[in-house]
Nucleic acid binder design. Structure first.
Length: 301
DNA sequence: TGACAGGGGGTGT
DNA sequence: ACACCCCCTGTC
């Protein structure tokens, strides 16, 4: 049988991130499925695998058989008109926001698969990106389905090994895995959350898809009923996995950012969330991503 | 090269 | 406020 081939490198029109912004978008905490090898980023979602690189300053892509440009564009948040959205943020009256927008031009919010986003952020409690990537990589390698479409999905170069060869396990599959086996994927106390969430989802077919399409408030209310899902995780899932730009996740970075740059020292997460929604408006989640990127880059300074 | 703290992008009680 | 788990990182 003749093996289907990867597509050739092709220009990706409509997005011109710098290397920093590309890295911040793919590997800055929105997603845990992208790996950089010598400037070639390989990512997987559902049964898809694609690569991105900056070549002569231009973004290029190629993909495994079974992954088309439309799949990639959807994943990268193609639908929205980013410049217009970003311009509508209150940067004219907010110097720190203006500086953050200028520091990360063309930063994007991804549009990841809803269920996979939930899984990733159930792993995220008190963990850093590198650790979350380890967990999800192990889950994929041990419990995911091979991504093989009548040919080798192995990228010609810059591969990521098993992480690219296996998709994340579906929630259906996760429901059949004993908690102890999940624990052995470095999940720690998060294993129980994932096991119980998986069982709940197995008892409620269609729950995830319905939740994804509910209005923001109703969707969030449903998500926080899942074990291991609080306000922060729910907002991350809705922002990065459902395109809800009004979701405003408050994690420790955003807490620090708003304390330092907006004088909200000592405020609790719920108070900061209220401030964020009021101050940044209906696209607060988009603003959050810029503040988050700024804070990650500048740390305590 | 290896051991040893310290702390971690949160949730639940 | 503190436990939950245990891996990563920096440091010696």
């Amino acid at each position: 049988m003749k093996a289907a081939a990867w597509s050739d490198w092709q220009p990706y029109s409509g997005w011109s991130p710098s290397p920093d912004v590309l890295a911040e978008t793919l590997d800055g905490g929105q997603s845990f499925g992208w790996y950089d090898a010598n400037g070639i980023w390989t990512g997987r979602w559902l049964g898809h695998v694609a690569q991105l690189r900056l070549h002569g300053g231009k973004l290029e892509w190629r993909a495994a058989p079974g992954t088309g440009e439309a799949d990639l564009r959807h994943y990268l948040g193609e639908a929205a008109e980013w410049p217009t959205l970003v311009d509508s943020l209150p940067w004219r009256s907010d110097a720190h926001l203006a500086a953050s927008l200028a520091a990360f031009p063309n930063l994007r919010i991804l549009r990841q698969p809803f269920g996979e986003t939930l899984l990733g952020f159930l792993c995220s409690a008190t963990k850093q990106i590198v650790q979350i990537k380890q967990m999800t990589k192990l889950l994929a390698a041990r419990h995911g389905a091979p991504i093989c479409r009548e040919g080798s999905p192995t990228p010609p170069e810059g591969g990521i090994g098993d992480a690219a060869l296996h998709s994340l396990p579906t929630w259906e599959a996760l429901a059949t895995i004993p908690e102890a086996e999940l624990r052995s994927c470095l999940l720690g106390f998060r294993a129980r959350y994932i096991a119980e969430t998986a069982k709940f989802l197995a008892r409620h077919p269609g729950w995830l898809e319905e939740t994804e399409h509910l209005p923001y408030a109703a969707a969030k209310a449903r998500l926080v009923d899942l074990p291991g899902v609080g306000e922060k995780v729910a907002d991350c899932v809705l922002l990065f996995g459902a395109g809800r730009l009004e979701a405003f996740p408050v994690d420790t970075w955003v807490l620090k950012s708003l304390a330092r740059r907006y004088g909200l020292t000592g405020w609790k997460p719920a108070q900061v969330a209220h401030f964020g929604r009021t101050h940044f408006g209906p696209l607060a989640g988009l603003a959050q991503q810029y503040l988050f990127a700024w804070e990650r880059k500048h740390g305590g300074r």
